[in-house]
Design a protein around this nucleic acid. Structure first.
Length: 280
DNA sequence: CGGAGTGTTAGTCG
DNA sequence: CCGACTAACACTCC
């Protein structure tokens, strides 16, 4: 859910609907989810929406920004009374707005609202000066964006660690944007065993994996992200990638390539799906 | 009904 | 510094 395709889908939605709005009021129901002084954003206009790895940054007109991480179950939802499909939202992942998981509400101009929902309350919103966003620990330690990497750089990162390839791909300090769903699917697509030491991959395998990540990211974007759990886009709508995964969640089903039974185990504490026959 | 499991990151410990 | 483990929290699934 909240990996590159999901967060980028939210970013695009906010870019389309939220930019230009003025923040008139902020209501904080769960204090720990919003750090910083809300007074610093009242009256400011939304200027730009940026994404770094799985992090979102809403830049305002007054030199402040909202840095957001939705972790596993956060939702950032824009509601506009002129967009009927949002006001009539019957999506089970959202329900009515605000709801019992709405922990921060932003009142915007023109009758619009922005809601931050988060059942597990793992996410955060930080109000900081735009110039200090990259001093925040999360952004400061973030590795290069996968989409910005050239194959040479990707190869160098892969070959410089003996960590298993799957947890390495998911390490945001080395490469940002890849999470569990797309790591599982990309490794399946490139026929690589998730527990292989990263530095054991051949140049050909590195290139295949590189292309596979691009491929599953593109599919994730095409389907508007994966709504396996709580993820919805900036209008509160489901994504569909969960119905198009290559191997994620297919424990016990047959591998489409060779008919073997897909297995699941745990690697680095994370659910890992693989075909024991064709992933080597 | 109880326990295990859930897509992420941060903090601790060795 | 690196890697392994677990807590943060609330819900769903078996």
């Amino acid at each position: 859910m909240p990996e590159f395709p999901e967060v980028e889908t939210i970013r695009r939605g906010l870019d389309k609907y939220l930019v230009g709005h003025k923040i008139e009021d902020v209501e904080v129901r769960v204090q720990k989810l919003l750090q910083g002084d809300p007074k610093n954003i009242i009256g400011a206009k939304v200027r730009d929406i940026r994404r770094f790895g799985k992090g979102l940054v809403i830049d305002l007109s007054n030199g402040y920004s909202l840095a957001i991480h939705i972790k596993l179950t956060g939702q950032v939802i824009y509601k506009d009374k002129t967009i009927s499909k949002v006001t009539n939202v019957s999506n089970a992942r959202v329900g009515t707005l605000p709801n019992k998981f709405t922990h921060v509400s932003f009142t915007l101009d023109k009758g619009s609202m922005l809601y931050y929902n988060d059942p597990r309350r793992f996410g955060w919103i930080k109000i900081v000066k735009t110039s200090e966003v990259h001093d925040l620990p999360f952004f400061k330690s973030l590795g290069p964006e996968f989409n910005a990497l050239k194959i040479e750089q990707f190869s160098k990162i892969i070959s410089s660690s003996k960590l298993a390839i799957k947890p390495l791909l998911m390490d945001q300090k080395r490469i940002s944007g890849i999470g569990n769903i797309y790591a599982n699917d990309a490794l399946y697509d490139s026929k690589i065993d998730p527990k292989r030491p990263a530095n054991s991959l051949t140049h050909i395998e590195q290139k295949e994996l590189f292309d596979s990540i691009k491929k599953v990211f593109a599919a994730g974007l095409k389907y508007g992200g994966s709504s396996e759990l709580n993820y919805v886009n900036a209008l509160g709508e489901d994504g569909q990638y969960q119905n198009h995964t290559l191997i994620y969640g297919k424990n016990g089903q047959k591998c489409k390539r060779d008919g073997s039974t897909i297995q699941k185990n745990y690697l680095g504490g994370r659910g890992t799906y693989f075909c024991p026959a064709c992933q080597r």
